[in-house]
Simulated scan of single mutants.
Amino acid sequence: MAEHAGVSAKTVSNVLHNHPYVSATTRETVEASIAALGYRANLSARALASKQTGFIALAIPGLDNPYYSELASHVMDAAAEHDWIVLIEQTRSSEAMEKAVVRGPASQLVDGIILQPDAIGDADLTDRFAHQNLVLIGEAAATASADHVTADSTAAAREVVEHLLEQGRTRIATVGIRPSNRANAGELRYRGYYQALERAGLGVRTEYLAPAERTRRPDGAAAADHLMSLPEPPDAIVCFNDLLASGVLARLRERGVAVPDDVAIAGFDDNEESRFTAPPLTSVAWDLEALGRRCVELLRARTGRTDGDHPPVRTVVGHRLVVRESTAGRG
């Protein structure tokens, strides 16, 4: 191919790997030769030569949640800069599927894995798989012995409740945010909720902690029915995510409950839908671009390293509270 294009083999390689330091004219010449010769990259040969597969895995609960689909997009963008293709595994938060991701034979077919471990424990992650290139995301991974990229859910929840308290709300309920014996997202957000109420001199009312079997709109609607049927309904509801909050908003509208006049609503994730609900939803926005990029950076840093053991790295990405009409009103 280099001979056909009249350039060096290195220049052809630079074009194939989309390196920026190639002139437009040279790139066009090489691409014309590629087309003329019908060249297709031999990925198997490339993997043998580099001892890398060219693939990484992203194992997440499911793409039907806008949070994970947006995260996947950012991971794919960052991975493309390193010529990696991202394979997506939907675990559905299943212990068996999460174990298969990190300990099954398929783990040897990728250069690294980005995993949200919702069901498996630290012991499974410590004895994970041979090549050691594992990055964990989410709150439940806080004690695992692997690189970990997360956000501060406790601080974020505390900020949401403090905002509601500033709006004069005192009967603040939750949906899907409850205490747990596992340091998962629900537990960590509950800690922030508890801290803010404690500082305000308000205790947690257990009847205001509405469970959610899943974190989808129908579960939010069912929780709204439960909370609004209480003898003293809440004047604010903090939902585990925006999908639950969307369900709560829809059900309150059906019941003739004014938001935010009667009840203020807030969520987490700030997905696109949140800007277009009626009314627009106050939500915590995570820096998913930074989260995805950092995961890929950590995998790249460990790929191919043979210079001894390196302790795991923990990274906390930023967040911000986006205040909209569902808590602050039109003013």
Rank of each mutant, 00 (worst) to 15 (best):
A49D: 01
N181F: 06
R128M: 05
G38W: 13
R169Q: 05
E289Q: 14
I34W: 12
A223F: 10
E187Y: 10
P312A: 14
T327D: 02
L87Q: 14
A80N: 13
T315W: 10
A183E: 09
L109E: 08
I137Q: 15
E70F: 00
I177F: 12
A45Q: 09
P234E: 01
S50G: 08
E159N: 11
R255L: 15
A212V: 03
V30F: 06
A72I: 03
G220M: 04
S33I: 00
Q90C: 03
A328R: 12
L298E: 05
E139F: 00
P105H: 11
V86A: 07
G121V: 01
L298G: 12
G308F: 02
L115D: 05
L244E: 06
L249N: 15
V22Q: 09
S180D: 13
I137R: 12
G112A: 03
T303P: 02
K99P: 00
R40G: 00
I120T: 10
S73E: 04
S229R: 14
T327I: 01
R171V: 01
A222N: 12
S229T: 12
A123L: 05
Y39S: 02
E159S: 14
R255Y: 03
A80W: 10
Y21A: 05
A224Y: 13
A78Y: 06
A196Y: 08
P280A: 05
S180G: 06
L230W: 08
N18S: 15
V248F: 10
P234H: 12
G331E: 13
P260Q: 10
Q132I: 00
P218C: 02
T174V: 02
A155T: 11
Y208C: 01
Q195R: 13
A80I: 00
D127Y: 10
I85T: 15
G203F: 01
F240M: 10
P312K: 11
T170D: 04
V110I: 07
V160W: 11
T306P: 04
N184T: 05
V149A: 06
L209R: 14
G176R: 08
A140E: 08
A285N: 11
I113P: 12
T170C: 04
V257T: 15
R103H: 14
R300N: 08
S94D: 13
R182N: 10
R128V: 04
T11C: 05
D147E: 01
R255A: 15
E139M: 05
A185T: 15
P280C: 04
A212C: 07
